[in-house]
């Protein structure tokens, strides 16, 4: 057995099955919260905000809201996926199975990314009910969505791996990711900020992700698209390196 295809498949489908079992929490909840954003920000505030880069405010925030969901969902899906068997002890059977670390991580991250992409697609469809959405570079959009979903699913895997309780699991998504997305230009253009805060925002990596996705939708961005792609790839490589190091050390899962 050079590659444990069935082992990979078992973990992947097992994780997708969890998604099915918790459909209300996994799918309906992000759709509902995104709809509320459209109602509150798009419809109410949008009436008071001018078009940005020639795009209506409601349409302008679609990529930012998709990115918000993508980041939070990919992290929570995968972190929970690895943390739960670690928490209830059933991880032993994955450790004892003839499956490589790479195959195991790929299955968890692949499932987490898949779930996130499904949610992302549903939110994109939902946004069509509220605003007009056009996609100028659909292939680039798919590429960016897949890249972000995998990268942050891997980041979520790392959080689940390192967390020893539920509180630790929620700290990074709640205290780091959500503020970074809100302060990363998801609901506004950086040009609307005073120069000092613009400078501060350049240190927020999520800004580059949101702008990259916005470029694929409307061809408008505060940065060059290659800066966005390079920052995503950099973060992906960083996550791969840290996860590989942590798993090699066996941290929290193998003595």
């Amino acid at each position: 057995m050079r590659i444990n295809y069935y082992g990979f498949r078992a973990i992947y489908l097992h994780e997708m099955d969890r998604f099915r079992r918790t459909l209300l929490q996994s799918l309906i909840s992000p759709v509902l919260s995104t709809s509320l954003y459209f109602i509150v920000f798009g419809s109410v505030i949008g009436n008071y905000v001018q078009n940005i880069d020639g795009i209506s405010y409601g349409s302008y925030i679609v990529p930012g809201l998709i990115m918000l969901t993508l980041l939070t969902q990919s992290i929570s899906n995968t972190s929970f996926g690895i943390f739960f068997p670690k928490f209830n002890g059933s991880l032993y059977e994955i450790l004892a199975a003839p499956i490589s670390t790479f195959e195991m991580v790929l299955a968890f991250v692949g499932a987490g990314a898949t779930k996130t992409l499904i949610i992302g697609a549903v939110i994109l469809a939902t946004s069509n009910f509220f605003v007009e959405v056009s996609i100028l570079h659909p292939l680039l959009m798919v590429f960016l969505l897949v890249l972000v979903a995998f990268t942050f699913a891997l980041f979520g895997f790392l959080i689940g791996l390192l967390s020893s309780n539920f509180e630790q699991m929620s700290i990074i998504p709640t205290l780091v990711i959500t503020p970074m997305v809100f302060l990363g230009g998801s609901l506004y253009s950086l040009d609307m900020l005073p120069p000092f805060w613009q400078m501060v925002t350049y240190f927020n990596p999520v800004v580059y992700l949101i702008n990259g996705l916005r470029f694929s939708f409307y061809g408008a961005s505060d940065f060059n698209i290659w800066i966005s792609i390079a920052s995503m790839i950099f973060f992906l490589v960083l996550c791969i390196s840290v996860v590989a190091y942590v798993l090699k050390k066996g941290y929290t899962i193998k003595s």
Binding site: M1, N4, Y5, Y6, G7, R9, A10, I11, L13, H14, D17, R18, R21, E93, I94, A97, P98, I99
Partner: peptide, 16 residues
């Protein structure tokens, strides 16, 4: 939260 059948089948898959 998994059924008996799925749980046992899952382990079979893990072992390739």
């Amino acid at each position: 939260f998994e059924t008996v059948f799925n749980n046992v089948s899952f382990t079979r898959g893990l072992y390739g």
